[in-house]
Amino acid sequence: MIIPLQHILIFSLLLFATGLYGVLVRRNIIGILISIELMLNAANLNLIAFSKSTSLAPETGQIFAIFVIAIAATAAAVGLAIVLALYRVRKTVYTDEVNLLKW
C-alpha cells in the first residue's frame, strides 16, 4: 500500500506543531530539547516523503535526512552537556528558575 504524499505532509506538519507547542509550554529544559527533536524529525519526514515522490535525484533528500539525524545527535550532546553544567551551578533544570539575567 502506498501512502499518499499529502497524508505524510499533514502528519509531519502535526508533528512539527506538536514540537513547537512543546517548546513553548514546557518548563523542563530536557522536555524542550526533546520537543526540538520532534521538530527536526518532522522536517526529516518531509525530506524522505519528498525524495520518494520527486523525479529528480531522490538520494539528496535522504542524505540530507541522515545529516539532520547526525546534527540532532550533536545538538543533544552539546545541549545535555550545557544542561548538566547548568544543573551543577544552579541545581535546577526548570526554565523559569533560570532567571539571573533579565531586562
Partner: peptide, 12 residues
C-alpha cells in the same frame, strides 16, 4: 529547526 522545515519544503 524551523529553518530546516522550510528547507524541506523547498526541497519538495
Amino acid at each position: 529547526a524551523i529553518m530546516l522545515y522550510g528547507m524541506s519544503l523547498l526541497y519538495g
